[in-house]
Design a protein around this nucleic acid. Structure first.
Lengths: 233, 233
DNA sequence: TTGAAAAGATGACAATTATCATGTATATAT
DNA sequence: ATATATACATGATAATTGTCATCTTTTCAA
């Protein structure tokens, strides 16, 4: 006696956001039967650089950072993943160990989908393959943009840009603070700078009145000024 | 009366290197019938950022740079494409105008393949879709690595790394000079720095005896030292 | 609750890198 | 062959960013 419970992939709203929507009923059922739901606490690792993943992780709730350790011991955050996004697909597709680590930035709910069902559907359902391809193409374009920003913009510009990104993607609360609260170190690791440099620039922004802070929460006060800062004024 | 001429895709050796190998005989024939062979001289543009591409370019010969213009007017080279590589696929897949410009770094021979046959095969042949997906996954990993290098390594380290990359990917001639000769400006645009800074560091490397130059040709003299420089010594 | 540990903040200084100026060499077209 | 543009080179200087040291605040577990 099957119920219409949300834990079945067929009914999962998250599916609307990702490639799984291109799967057939049967394929989805198989995924649903083999998937494992996981809960991860803020700060916990989901997987580590170099791990061999035998499946992908679909984010149902919360936000995760995807980062790569550099030779000098600093983490570079390459991407943030939130509701509906799939992590680890690159690694599963090319059958290599993953090049990134995933760590929860907030409490998270994840579905782990074993690679078999993914790989099988990939090889038999072109619609699904094309959907995954579209997502990866999008990620690649974003990565290109990051490369250009990293090399051509100053730290100040990159931090200003990060705030706009956070606002546009994760929104702000009733008091005007960004919903996603990051440590200064994480902000530094996103824009690729020293933690002290990030802190200094954040203080400067605050002094100038373009942002406000409350504890580690940050709110955009003057978006126009932030946009100007991005342009280099 | 068909001949076994190399201009037919079915016989093109280049195919071994790219996703086209996953196409069926019929699909390949269609591609072959609709493709256009082009010759491009060194320095000429193949497409420009923002262009709507109605097909992809397959490199038969020569090398092209894929770059993106930054707000401050500098070009950032995001990737080099050579024999067997396909350019413009990202744009065709997501049906957006391209985010990159392609300019020939040497005289080139290209095949232009109209998007119809690509898109059609993508949607009907999972093997092909997966092959393209693999390539894109590989590009994405490389892009991640570039992001980390850009943000965590010094210009000196990045230039040293670029020389090793050029040697490993395009080889060197009998006299020990890199086969791919780039202008100092292009080198600067690969590693994301000012042209003068690149020139200065190249001069320094030469003075130290790690590289040699002859005109604009550059040769690696002491690979061990270059590898040390990459590590930051 | 308290005391250690982690995160945030800031100064001082050094290192890296960009910018501007100018000069030399090299390539290219007439 | 010569002019002219382009690429290469280098100095001087300024701006940016990183590093180290120290202090304060916040967080969290015992």
């Amino acid at each position: 006696m099957e119920k219409d419970e949300p834990s079945r992939c067929e009914n999962c709203i998250i599916r609307q956001f990702n490639s799984l929507r291109a799967m057939s009923k049967d394929e989805l059922k198989k995924v649903s039967d083999s998937k494992i739901t996981k809960t991860v606490k803020k700060g916990e690792a989901i997987f580590e650089e170099g791990d061999k993943l035998d499946g992908v992780f679909c984010v149902r709730n919360g936000i995760s950072k995807l980062s790569k350790l550099s030779a000098n011991g600093k983490d570079q955050i390459v991407k943030l993943a939130s509701k509906g996004e799939v992590m680890g697909q690159r690694s599963v597709i090319v059958e290599e160990s993953t090049n990134l680590s995933a760590v929860a930035l907030s409490d998270m709910e994840l579905c782990f989908i074993p690679k078999d069902s993914i790989v099988h559907t990939l090889n038999s359902n072109p619609d699904f393959a094309v959907e995954v391809l579209r997502h990866m193409a999008h990620d690649l374009k974003e990565a290109d943009d990051v490369i250009v920003n990293m090399s051509q913009k100053t730290v100040k510009q990159r931090i200003a840009e990060a705030f706009i990104y956070l606002k546009n993607n994760y929104g702000e609360d009733a008091q005007g603070f960004l919903n996603l609260t990051l440590s200064r170190e994480d902000i530094a690791n996103i824009v690729g700078t020293a933690t002290e440099s990030a802190i200094r620039i954040i203080s400067e922004f605050k002094k100038k009145g373009v942002i406000k802070t409350s504890g580690k929460k940050i709110g955009i006060v003057n978006e126009k000024m932030i946009l100007d800062l991005i342009e280099g004024f």
